[in-house]
Design a protein around this nucleic acid. Structure first.
Length: 359
DNA sequence: GACCCGTGGAT
DNA sequence: TATCCAAGGGT
């Protein structure tokens, strides 16, 4: 990426040829156009509300790591109602954060968010740090989250680089279908060069570029007909060349991750420490239950549920259902032990004398 | 840099 | 049904 005010606007070539440089005039056009699109088309998300707090922004950014907005929304509201300030979360056991995390996935994020709240309460007077450097020092906060919170919670000029922004940059000015599998130094440089100098404009650019990637310039089927800068897109000008690599899918069935997830579901549903024999022992007898029940609200035992044909049967407790789901995986004992040991090593579970529990 | 870490909707 | 993918971070 080059920024040369005097560079001629050469015609975009087809194939692997270098896309034309972005001169200052074109850059300002992009800033204005994409930000204008954001004003008209962006989603009305609660962590963008004027009443939001920096803590609310931080929680949203961590929850949104690798997790879609629609799944985050209800959990974020629950967290904000229960823990409107980081000190309130820090006052509870970390396991409560893991339990309230529900099915967002990657429960280590919940653990680190609790740890971050503890640091904020103990070392920052209960206030979220307002600089990238201060944010970066928090557990679970990496380069993306630090920049995002600095920009969106505090209005600072920070180079935000997430998967959406990477994809928009790759297409719009890079002429490529998709960014590289992993973030490169060249991408970070390009993002820094594209960022408006003015702080307020930079925040708008970060937010609008991210939103454009989420709603229009999507990974699978980009909605170019709705794109405000389609006419400026280097990828389209190049004839929409295909990705230069094929993503390798991540296996799931039979992996340790699947087993860890099933074990965590049992612990989240359990009100008391669970004997290890219940994980490794024989599966409980099958019963008529709804396998599509939502994430259980931890509560007392079994209730009645109406089954097929209006029949009423005794439903297993959420805990028993999670246990049944784990046993349905038919995991070998050594893999089960490995998964549990991993959870303990990560601090997601504690072995309380032969019983497993949330920390 | 490679690899690991959850979950569920969309295609 | 199988694969892809989603506001990444840590080791």
């Amino acid at each position: 990426m080059t920024l040369s005010p005097t560079a001629p606007a050469s015609r975009a070539a087809v194939g692997s040829a270098t896309p034309p440089p972005v001169d200052r005039q074109r850059l300002e056009h992009l800033h204005h156009t994409v930000s204008g699109w954001f004003t008209a088309e962006s989603r009305d998300l609660p962590w963008r509300d004027p009443d939001r707090t920096p803590w609310g922004v931080l929680v949203s950014e961590v929850m949104l790591q690798q997790t879609p907005v629609v799944r985050v929304l209800p959990v974020w509201h629950e967290w904000m109602e229960r823990w409107p300030e980081p000190a309130l979360l820090a006052a509870e056991p970390p396991g409560e954060a893991v339990r309230a995390w529900g099915r967002l996935g990657y429960p280590r994020r919940a653990l680190r968010l609790h740890a971050a709240a503890t640091v904020i309460a103990a070392e920052h007077g209960g206030r979220v740090p307002d600089t990238e450097e201060g944010l970066l020092a928090l557990p679970g906060v990496g380069s993306y989250t630090a920049a995002a919170v600095a920009a969106f919670a505090f209005g600072r000029r920070a180079t935000v680089v997430d998967t959406n922004i990477r994809r928009v940059h790759a297409r719009l000015v890079g002429g490529e279908a998709l960014p590289a599998p992993a973030l490169t130094a060249a991408e970070q440089r390009r993002a820094a060069e594209l960022l408006p100098e003015d702080a307020a404009l930079s925040v708008a650019w970060n937010a609008s570029t991210m939103e454009l990637g989420a709603l229009v310039c999507t990974a699978r089927s980009p909605r170019c007909a709705e794109c405000p800068v389609a006419a400026d897109c280097a990828w389209r000008a190049a004839g929409e060349p295909p990705p230069s690599y094929t993503p390798k899918g991540q296996a799931w069935h039979g992996t340790d991750r699947q087993v860890r997830g099933a074990v965590m579901a049992v612990l989240r549903a359990a009100e008391h420490p669970v004997a290890l024999e219940l994980f490794t022992g024989p599966a409980p007898e099958p019963e008529l239950v709804s396998e599509t029940a939502p994430e259980p609200v931890p509560g007392p035992g079994a209730g009645l549920v109406s089954g097929p044909g209006g029949a009423v049967s005794r439903a297993r407790s959420p805990h028993a259902m999670a246990l049944a789901r784990l046993h349905a995986l038919r995991t070998g004992p050594e893999q089960l032990e490995r998964a549990i040991a991993g959870l303990v090593a990560d601090g997601l579970a504690v072995d309380d004398g032969g019983r497993l529990a949330l920390p």
